[in-house]
Design a protein around this nucleic acid. Structure first.
Lengths: 182, 182
DNA sequence: GCCGCTATGTATAACGC
DNA sequence: TGCGTTATACATAGCGG
């Protein structure tokens, strides 16, 4: 897809690898976003950068917001003479959101996996195990949800104070300058 | 990318939508795969088809990604460079948390339905996989519970009052503070 | 409904700032 | 390190079997 064809092998140059990662992560999330919108389906994706930083994407409504959010350029933003407590808080929330997103992702994947396993067997006995597993997952989600609500409330109070800033979700598909190549 | 440009909007024709989904899901997973190989990173993606069938992709494997995640320290703010426009972001975050929570519930519901559906099917035998999955899930749950406790504690502290936290780019990576709960 | 085909729209490798 | 540009490699919409 570039000036030269590259083989899908680990990019040895760490520098180039980082660049590749950034570009492709963006592309991947964009694709995920399009898929979710075009088909009205739920999509979640997680990826760790070469530096082990987690990045995630999830659809329903979060859409490309998560991706956009994680890619914000620190320079585009101005104002916000808030206390450091907010910054710390934001980071916290960020972290948590990521974790939760991924947890959801993992759970979903889990379900997928054992569904596959089930398809490869006809052992009725194991169905119960699956049932339990699913229920466990459901419980876990509820647990997470409750904690989330609490955290959210706390955050809201803490933040309940200043300006809006138009951070909106001018999501992924923003560069619309297309033209046929020569 | 096809004979005609299409706008990223829900495809009305269910038939076409299904086709689009299949093609794009394949493409998305391929991209995810390439990304993980090219950059040697961990990647996980899940997507539900229009028929609510879960499909997933993950590089090393789910558990690896999950474990990686759960090792993130709530207090180590080395991830992502977003410390600006906090107020706005918090709003976005709250919204995202809401959506995510809802999504989780949705998924849980679907998971059960799917499980039910599977009860009417039968195939080969692969108890081992099931066994592994079962164990993995149990472990995952423990990890998440602990993680939740940590988040809660951190949250409490933050809400209580501020913490300077000077955000640097050094990669703390993981700190193996996990204890294999049994 | 899945496979292949082909014309096009996109993503992105190499560069340049 | 990040963002923009250009030339190409890829992905895929619309069809046909």
């Amino acid at each position: 897809m570039g000036r030269k064809k590259i083989e899908i092998k680990l990019v040895k140059d760490p520098n180039v690898r980082q660049v590749t990662f950034s570009k492709r992560r963006t592309g991947l999330f964009k694709k995920a976003s399009e898929l979710s919108i075009l088909c009205g389906t739920e999509v979640a994706a997680v990826v760790f950068s070469p530096g082990n930083k987690p990045y995630s994407f999830a659809h329903p409504n979060v859409d490309a917001v998560a991706a956009e959010f994680l890619q914000q350029e620190p320079n585009s933003n101005e104002a916000h003479g808030s206390s450091s407590s907010n910054e710390a808080n934001l980071d916290e929330l960020n972290q948590q959101l990521l974790d939760l997103t991924n947890q959801s992702c993992e759970e979903a994947k889990k379900g997928k996996l054992y569904d596959e396993a089930l398809k490869n067997q006809s052992n009725k006995t194991k169905l119960q195990d699956l049932q339990e597993l699913h229920e466990s997952a459901a419980e876990l989600r509820c647990l997470i949800k409750e904690r989330l609500n609490e955290m959210e409330a706390a955050e809201a109070m803490l933040v309940m104070k200043e300006q809006p800033v138009e951070f909106s979700e001018n999501h992924v598909a923003k560069k619309k300058k297309r033209k046929t190549k020569a």
